[in-house]
């Protein structure tokens, strides 16, 4: 099997495109780069590409992962160069390796490392930051998720304790804070960066605006999906 997996970035303007848009972008890039990719069978054959846990719209990333199957092997560096010559400026392949992994990238994704740069309406006290951090780590917070099932609206209360592996809030100058966090992003449960913002707001932090970046996606051993 010629399965190749790799790491790529999705920054700046590309934070506005969805998971599905990213897939289409990759499929067309692969064709422009003349990568000998394998196609699916059926009425509308498409290049076989899969990704790690989807990134929400509006969030940048320097640690996304793809996997594709090739008809024949090409050198990894050639692959990277070919792809990068056709990808947009704000999306670049960083690494690529051949793999025999049976498990999909989706199944391997368990945690995501985020950095959030947050602007506040007013300055915040260091001690309050400590209290909030401790509370989130030791007790977790409760969030409400609303789902629409047909015409019924289902509300679900979730405690975030098991969904946050690590959180560190740093106070910066000029009414700004920086949050580093490792959040669960797996098919069996996940916490979105937006929801973390909600938790911080709920804890009394007056957030005006934030920018989020996913630094990496980690497996259950907390290792990056591609080393």
């Amino acid at each position: 099997m010629n399965k190749i997996k790799g790491k790529f970035t999705k920054t700046k303007n590309l934070k506005y495109i969805s998971h599905l848009d990213t897939l289409r972008l990759f499929q067309r890039a692969v064709r422009r780069a003349k990568i000998p990719i394998k196609y699916s069978e059926g009425f509308n054959p498409h290049p076989k590409i899969t990704f790690s846990f989807p990134l929400a719209l509006g969030i940048e990333s320097i640690g996304e992962y793809f996997e594709m199957e090739l008809e024949e092997r090409i050198n990894e560096d050639t692959f990277i160069n070919k792809m990068n010559s056709v990808l947009p400026e704000d999306m670049k392949v960083l690494k690529a390796v051949y793999t025999n992994d049976k498990e999909s990238l989706m199944a391997l994704s368990v945690w995501s490392e985020f950095i959030l740069n947050i602007e506040l309406y007013e300055d915040i006290d260091e001690n309050l930051i400590k209290d909030i951090t401790n509370d989130i780590i030791s007790n977790g917070k409760t969030i409400t998720r609303i789902r629409k099932k047909k015409k019924k609206i289902i509300e679900k209360q979730i405690n975030t304790k098991d969904l946050i592996k690590y959180i560190n809030i740093k106070k910066l100058e000029d009414k700004r804070i920086c949050v580093e966090a490792i959040l669960k992003t797996s098919s069996s449960g996940s916490l979105k960066a937006d929801e973390l913002i909600y938790i911080l707001k709920d804890s009394g932090i007056k957030i005006e605006y934030f920018e989020a970046m996913r630094n990496n996606i980690l497996n259950k051993e907390l290792d990056p999906l591609v080393k």
């Binding site: 499929q27 067309r28 890039a29 692969v30 064709r31 422009r32 056709v86």
Partner: peptide, 8 residues
């Protein structure tokens, strides 16, 4: 055009 776009 195919080379420049990668359209299917």
């Amino acid at each position: 055009l195919v080379n420049a776009t990668g359209h299917e």
